[in-house]
């Protein structure tokens, strides 16, 4: 009887632990064997604004993770530090006037991981917890923490 109560209590605690929002951390990721070792915040901003960033003479390829709306908001506020209309204008401006490439977009974490795996020069961002499910990915730096 006591053992059953303990089991139920443990199950409840487990459920509560699942429901309790864990601390979120946004990280910059690349493929595990990527030549990129580190990027400061200004370079990251340049990268996602379409400015060509070269590592060993090879251009990096930014991938915008659009798997969640909240992630998009953090991207705009923390990484590019712009409003959505300003970011869109900036990208259009770079593409049309400078001939830069716009960052590619991926609508799911799986798609982000696939693109990163396909290109060693690809750089993207995702929740730290998602990186744990992709052993082929490597965290470059923490971008934002809740």
């Amino acid at each position: 009887m006591i053992a059953r109560r303990i089991i139920v209590l443990l199950l409840l605690l487990g459920a509560l632990a699942e429901a309790w929002p864990a601390a979120q951390t946004l990280v910059l990721v690349v493929r595990r064997d990527s030549p990129v070792t580190d990027l400061d915040s200004v370079t990251v901003r340049k990268l996602f604004l379409g400015v060509p960033v070269l590592i060993n003479g090879t251009p990096l390829r930014p991938i915008r993770n659009r798997s969640e709306p909240h992630l998009d908001e953090i991207f705009l506020q923390q990484i590019v530090a712009m409003s959505q209309p300003s970011y869109d204008r900036q990208i259009l401006n770079g593409v049309n006037r400078q001939g830069w490439l716009a960052p590619s977009e991926a609508a799911s974490v799986t798609r982000v991981a696939a693109e990163l795996n396909a290109n060693p020069n690809a750089v993207s961002f995702m929740w730290e917890r998602d990186v744990a499910h992709n052993p082929n990915l490597r965290v470059l730096r923490v971008l934002w923490s809740d």
């Binding site: 705009l76 506020q77 530090a81 712009m82 409003s83 959505q84 209309p85 300003s86």
Partner: peptide, 9 residues
């Protein structure tokens, strides 16, 4: 939009 853009930058 102008406010958000300026404070973020």
């Amino acid at each position: 939009e102008r406010f958000i853009n300026s404070v973020r930058a």
